[in-house]
């Protein structure tokens, strides 16, 4: 009943005229020179540690070093095409870390993800404009993998980097399927609510590393 009343009131406005003309927002599609460097510098400025690597094999090497240096015990990974190209069995065997994929966990997923020290995902897109990684969520790409652990690592392929949010808007709008959610992650969770002092790691990961591959 309230629905009808509200809509009726809105529709009965007598001033209604056609919408005024609009400025069209233009976007530059495709590769733009300096996109990767923009992404790296913007993501770094937002508090992420960004490493440019030439291949996934190099990511594997760095992951091994990180697992050892940080003494990470529980790792959760998304069932993502890029992430699955890493040899997690080898990483687990050569370190003390237990590694589980969202595909393996099903019923135990929630209890595992909240205890994990590290979450690793790929991404669907990244934005050079802001140093943002764009995550598309599904049962293979659960939301808390990139949010609940203290440490989050994202693997970005260079060809996934878009110029800006307007290009992303066009891609999302013309996509035939709709995921349950998208998350745009830029750097590290933060707050300035204590007397304007910026503190990283409020409710999300305290540390974020992004590997840019290619």
């Amino acid at each position: 009943m309230s629905r009808e009343m509200i809509l009726e009131r809105l529709k009965s406005a007598t001033w209604t005229q056609p919408s005024p003309s609009r400025t069209v927002i233009t976007t530059e599609k495709g590769a733009v020179a300096g996109e990767v460097q923009d992404f790296v510098s913007k993501a770094t400025a937002a508090g992420a540690q960004v490493e440019e690597v030439s291949s996934l094999a190099e990511v594997q090497t760095r992951l091994m070093e990180i697992l050892k240096e940080e003494q990470l015990q529980k790792v959760i990974i998304n069932n993502d095409e890029t992430v699955n190209q890493i040899d997690w069995q080898q990483l687990s065997a050569e370190t003390t870390a237990e590694v589980k994929s969202t595909a393996q966990l099903s019923g135990n997923y929630r209890s595992y993800v909240v205890e994990a020290d590290l979450g690793v995902t790929g991404c669907t897109y990244a934005l050079a404009e802001t140093g943002t990684v764009v995550l598309e969520h599904s049962n293979d790409n659960e939301r808390l993998v990139s949010h609940a652990p203290n440490y989050y690592i994202c693997i970005v392929k260079k060809d996934q980097i878009l110029k800006d949010r307007y290009v992303l808007a066009e891609i999302i709008s013309s996509s035939p399927t709709t995921p349950t959610a998208w998350t745009l992650v830029t750097g590290v969770s933060r707050t300035a609510d204590v007397a304007l002092q910026v503190v990283l790691g409020m409710h999300g990961p305290r540390k974020v590393t992004i590997f840019v591959v290619g």
Binding site: S106, T130, A181, T183, L184, R190
Partner: peptide, 20 residues
Amino acid sequence: AITSYVSVLNGPRRNDETDG
């Protein structure tokens, strides 16, 4: 230029999803 997180929510979780 953008906040740390932007969530775009399209609906409740589906089939085999746990989060959401």
